[in-house]
Design a protein around this nucleic acid. Structure first.
Length: 539
RNA sequence: GGAGCGUUGGUCAAGGGGUUAAGACACCUCCCUUUCACGGAGGAAUCACGGGUUCGAUUCCCGUACGCUCUACCA
């Protein structure tokens, strides 16, 4: 068993956007597979046709792509065990269910939904099990002849597992150690539905066997139904072929208790989906981490830390490091409350850590999406949502740009990113932190200094304009030197003059060093912005 | 209700019979910065409770409490 190639699977239902917890399950699967030189398989569990949602499957694959968690086998990527959609493997399941009936490990049940509902109302904690099935309509009670008759008449029926009475079912969970259940506590789950489709319980077991899955990671919410799966393995394929189970801790809501849900995110103002998800029925859009301005590296890093810790104190991990260091033994048993502030901290760390060159495309894309007119950029093409964009430089001398913007080149954007990335937590922060580099500030908080404005300052700035206009050198240090010299000549403290200058250039009390900004936006824009505010002040 | 699983600061967590019980986020103070951030230095704050076992329990055992998950012809 140990020399078998590691094969893990992520088995989502295409019922909507991919939630944080789902992506984390993928991550742990992926890390474990890659660490062991194994394969990561994505199998679509679409056995419930009533819950099918248009676009959900595509969304899942786009999310995986964005996160850098590419499957080795999937309906999209193909593989030796195709098809990878359970709806396309329908014929596989019935035979196993029938086999179980033949072996006495399962039985036909003809009870209608209404009859079962009535039972549930009548009996407090109704379970379809050893004790109650006597009073119900199933092949165990009806007998061979009656059963065959009903079957021949095509009476709608399901196949249920025939759980033994009062038997201990034990297994070893990779995270929790030995776990055991008594069969009296679990009910005779439906294996094959009336429509001929398997339920999850039958489908996972059959497909995990057929696809030679060696390790199965899933959320803790599956723990109570594990005994059904264990028994099915025992009866159908042998325990020695069963994958090793690992039930992952839940991700909890930040306030109160319970599983984190999309509603909590809406309520508290943070995303819970990886990427924007538009519900095709309601047209409602749930915002995703991607659109909120997260770097995929940061998103993945943050997810890895939700339930796992390598014990060294290291917090920032690249995917390669995660693959190398991930260890299932160090996954926690208890759930963790999601902390959006910490999530943003990861993003901030990643923005600081990422080379400015590598940030150009995502930043340009964000600016473009926020309609910052990047003059000088001839064309920004968005190939598709997850794809990087391409930027073309203009053939200068064509458009009637203001002189400043002729300086545009990628190196210019990189310079800006270098200057501001420390103060950007989300990619979207680049919009506010950089817009004044590209165009005159929309609003100028002139009142920040107006009350302290006087003739002396007016004169100083008038002269500064002349000095800057004549200046040949345009480096931040030169600008600062001439600024200070001029201030001294006017008998003014530079301190009282820098705030007005800042506000003239950027519009408010924020941003990097003023002279750095002036150096980057260039002579013409600097002079023009000062003059503009000077005019406002005298008006 | 039942079953299962869990419980170290406000949150994420390291540790695991004898420690000043790491670190991170958030919070507070100060420094740096003639803006805002970044950064740096400090601070406050914790082993759910009760019994054992032990010379000694946060750590091991048993209870209790609390929380969560499941209890569908959903996954």
């Amino acid at each position: 068993m140990n020399d078998k190639k590691v094969r893990v699977r992520f088995a989502p239902s295409p019922t909507g956007g991919l939630h944080l917890g789902g992506v984390r399950t993928v991550l742990f699967n992926y890390l474990f597979a890659k660490q062991n030189g194994g394969d990561f398989i994505v199998r679509i569990e679409d056995t419930d046709q009533t819950r099918f949602v248009e676009g959900a499957e595509e969304y899942i694959f786009e999310t995986l792509k964005w996160c850098g968690l590419q499957p080795d086998e999937s309906p999209l990527h193909g593989g030796a065990y195709a098809p990878y959609r359970q709806s396309e493997r329908k014929e596989n399941y019935r035979q196993y269910a029938e086999q179980l009936v033949k072996d006495g490990k399962a039985y036909y049940a003809f009870d209608t939904a209404e009859e079962l509902d009535a039972k549930r109302k009548e009996i407090a904690n109704f379970q379809y099990n050893h004790a109650t099935r006597v009073g119900l309509k199933n092949s165990l009670i009806l007998g061979e002849e009656e059963t065959q008759k009903l079957l021949a008449e095509n009476v709608p029926h399901v196949i249920r597992i025939n759980l033994p009475d009062n038997e201990e079912v034990k297994f070893t969970d990779m995270i929790r150690g030995e776990v055991s259940f008594n069969t009296t506590q679990v009910d005779d789950k439906v294996l094959l539905k009336a429509d001929g489709m398997p339920t999850y319980h039958l489908a996972v077991v059959v497909d995990d066997y057929l696809m030679k899955i060696t390790h199965a990671f899933r959320g803790e919410e599956w723990l109570p139904s594990a005994p059904v799966h264990i028994l099915l393995w025992q009866w159908l394929f042998g325990l020695e072929n069963m994958p090793q189970w690992a039930h992952l801790p839940l991700i909890l809501k930040p306030d109160g208790n319970g599983k984190l849900s999309k509603r909590d995110g809406d309520r508290l103002g943070f995303p819970t989906f990886a990427m924007d998800w538009k519900d095709p029925k309601s047209d409602e859009v749930a915002t995703g981490f991607r659109e909120r301005g997260f770097l995929p590296e940061a998103f993945v890093n943050m997810l890895a830390a939700l339930g796992w810790n390598d014990g060294s104190g290291q917090e920032i991990f690249t995917m390669e490091e995660l693959v190398a260091k991930f260890n299932i033994d160090r996954v926690h048993k208890g759930g963790a409350k999601f902390d959006y502030e910490k999530a943003k901290w990861y993003n901030h760390e990643w923005i600081k850590k990422t080379n400015s060159e590598d940030l150009i495309k995502p930043v340009a894309k964000i600016l473009y999406e926020h309609q910052i007119p990047i003059l000088g950029v001839k064309k920004i093409t968005i190939i598709n949502q997850s794809e990087a964009i391409t930027i073309e430089k203009p053939n200068n001398n064509l458009e009637p740009f203001k002189p400043l913007y002729f300086q545009f080149e990628l190196a210019w954007i990189k310079q800006i990113i270098d200057l501001i990335k420390d103060r950007c937590t989300l990619l979207t922060d680049f919009v506010n932190q950089s817009s004044f580099f590209f165009h005159t500030p929309d609003t100028i908080s002139i009142n920040e200094f107006r009350s302290k404005w006087d003739e002396k300052k007016q004169l100083f700035f008038n002269e500064l304009v002349r000095t800057y206009e004549l200046s040949i050198l345009w480096e931040a240090t030169d600008l600062e030197t001439s600024f200070k010299e001029s201030a001294a000549a006017h008998n003014l403290k530079p301190g009282e003059l820098m705030l007005p200058l800042r506000i003239m250039l950027v519009g408010g009390k924020f941003g990097p060093g003023v002279f750095d900004i002036a150096a980057i936006i260039g002579k013409e824009a600097t002079v023009e912005r000062i003059k503009h505010v000077l005019k406002l002040l005298t008006a």
